[in-house]
């Protein structure tokens, strides 16, 4: 029994010590390199974020994306709802126009988000239903649905972290991201 106990604990140790220097490669940003300082992980920065301006006159793709994204209004939602309310309806044709013209060479990623009441799968699904409503509305406005992808972050991507109703309202939203 003693041996079993010891070997099982030792196995745990081996696992732990084994994983400490083999953290999975993290593909994202430079902050990751600091976070896994113990692990010699090569961290690459996506080219779209690292491009520098070579000439003031030429706009890079990432700059163009950043500029156009500002023209795409975030669509907000009512508490526990995923239909687009009257106040937010006018944003759909305006955004569709940008996507069909100035941003036509890019794909669109719709990011659904929720307020802070729950990080479980259902909340993620609610965020997705919001994104899907926006996708359907954009499609009805003539945007190519094949160029739209969706994701839902649930409550994990708040723009406001205060515990007020105004703040929660801001977080119930669908953001537009352009992809090269």
């Amino acid at each position: 029994m003693k041996n079993i106990v010891m070997s099982s604990v030792v196995a745990a140790v081996l696992l732990f010590s084994g994983c400490s220097d083999k953290d999975p490669k993290v593909e994202d940003n430079s902050g990751a390199a600091q976070a896994v300082a113990a692990a010699p992980v090569a961290t690459s920065v996506p080219s779209s974020r690292s491009e520098s301006v070579s000439s003031a006159a030429v706009e890079s793709e990432s700059e163009m994306i950043a500029r156009l994204q500002k023209e795409l209004a975030t669509i907000n939602f009512d508490f526990d709802k995923f239909n687009i309310n009257a106040a937010n309806q006018p944003k759909v044709p305006a955004n569709a126009e940008v996507l069909k013209t100035k941003a036509s060479k890019f794909s669109t990623k719709l990011e659904g988000n929720c307020d802070e009441w729950g990080s479980d799968e259902y909340n993620i699904a609610l965020g997705l239903k919001r994104a899907n409503e926006v996708k359907k509305a954009l499609s009805a406005e003539g945007v190519n649905a094949d160029k739209i992808t969706m994701v839902s972050y649930g409550e994990s991507n708040p723009v406001c972290t205060e515990k007020t109703k105004e703040c929660w309202a801001q977080n119930r939203r669908v953001d537009f991201k352009l992809l090269p």
Binding site: V26, E27, V36, T43
Partner: peptide, 20 residues
């Protein structure tokens, strides 16, 4: 990864947006 009391904690995936 932790024990059930959270007194041992080992970050196995750092950086990025990884959940569930």
């Amino acid at each position: 990864i932790s024990d059930y009391t959270l007194s041992y904690q080992h970050t196995i995936v750092a950086g990025g947006f990884n959940v569930f």
